[in-house]
Amino acid sequence: MPRRKQARRTSVRDIQAILRLTHEQGLSVREVSERLKISKTTVSTYLLRAREAGLSCWPLPPGHHDAALERLLFGRAGRPPQDLSEPNFALIARELKRKGVTLTLLWQEYRAAHPDGYGYTWFCEHVAAFERRTSATFRNRHAAGAVMQTDYAGQTVPVIDPATGIIYPAHIFVAVLGASNLTFAFASSSQKLPDWIEGQVRALAFFGGVTRAIVCDNLKAGVVKALWFEPTLNATFAAMAEHSETTILPTRSRKPRDKAKVEGAVLIVERWILARLRNRSFFSIAELNAAIAELLEELNNRPMRHVGQSRRELF
């Protein structure tokens, strides 16, 4: 196999030739590139550096020997900041939450106030480090049998009414156990209270027991007022919890980390079950649930990549 040809290293002599051909002979960037066998990008870059250094003529002024020319053109590379005053990272973190504000804009404003301050890369790295230090997150370690998390998937499945030919969406209820990640999915015709209750009951039957708590989405059909410790539940939903001897903990609005397990389970169900059913036609909810159950069994028995065991084995 022939060896790959190595790119020729550009020398100071090449830079002098670029300046001579450009300013003495008036050649274009393309012509200089073809003459010296150097890329047009490289020629343009050296011409830009020369203009920034005030060298737009040929011959060069006296005293511009090889070392002096190289120092003049490349001396600004890696320049340390002269102004070492650090930005107000707390203010930057607050400003980033405002609509339309970007890191680039904040850095430009910082450099306008501190022209000799830090560069953009340093600025971004230290802003990210500050956010990691201040945005603390809690890693919840779930005990076996402690919690079941439930929610509806955002994706629906079309079901065809065989009598009328009307297509209506089937909503996918998802439940997951915190410790083992054992997952349950069930299709219903709506997200109303009867379907919501049926999904909870079917999930508990699928898992074969009742967890100490059910962490659920604050669905209006089941939760009147979502408070973490004193929620106001629909009377039927509260009766179901009392009958099952469990506690209902609705999550806060727009706080997906309160039910992170089921958020991940919804994503997995959409990718591993619903995506595989995208080209199939269903004429009843029962037919759809039969197909979901078959793929759900495969999902729960499939070894998880980073764990080495399946959800069923962990359960």
Rank of each mutant, 00 (worst) to 15 (best):
304 M>P: 03
6 Q>V: 15
229 F>K: 09
176 V>P: 07
146 A>K: 05
279 N>P: 02
262 V>C: 09
218 N>W: 07
116 D>N: 10
239 A>C: 03
135 S>F: 13
176 V>S: 06
31 E>G: 07
21 L>G: 07
95 E>T: 09
47 L>R: 13
252 R>K: 10
281 S>N: 09
119 G>V: 09
273 I>L: 03
2 P>K: 10
271 R>P: 00
138 F>Y: 14
69 L>A: 12
172 I>Y: 00
179 A>W: 15
165 G>A: 05
46 Y>A: 08
103 L>W: 06
308 G>R: 02
56 S>R: 11
36 L>W: 04
205 A>F: 05
286 A>N: 09
155 Q>Y: 00
271 R>C: 00
240 M>D: 01
165 G>S: 05
224 V>T: 12
297 E>H: 12
254 R>Y: 15
195 D>K: 04
290 A>M: 12
288 L>Q: 01
43 V>M: 04
314 L>N: 02
272 W>Q: 05
310 S>C: 04
4 R>N: 06
82 Q>S: 15
241 A>T: 10
62 P>Y: 08
119 G>M: 10
204 L>E: 04
61 P>Q: 04
161 D>Q: 10
41 T>D: 13
250 P>G: 11
165 G>L: 06
11 S>M: 13
109 E>I: 07
33 S>C: 05
239 A>D: 12
297 E>I: 03
228 W>H: 10
106 L>Y: 04
38 I>A: 14
282 F>A: 05
23 H>D: 03
24 E>C: 08
261 K>D: 14
59 P>K: 05
295 L>P: 11
205 A>G: 08
270 E>D: 13
1 M>G: 15
217 D>R: 00
69 L>K: 07
215 V>S: 06
234 N>A: 10
284 S>H: 07
151 D>G: 08
260 A>P: 14
111 R>L: 15
257 R>M: 14
167 I>T: 15
112 A>V: 06
293 A>M: 03
230 E>P: 04
33 S>P: 08
285 I>K: 01
259 K>L: 03
280 R>I: 00
131 E>C: 15
263 E>F: 08
54 G>R: 01
276 R>W: 01
269 V>K: 00
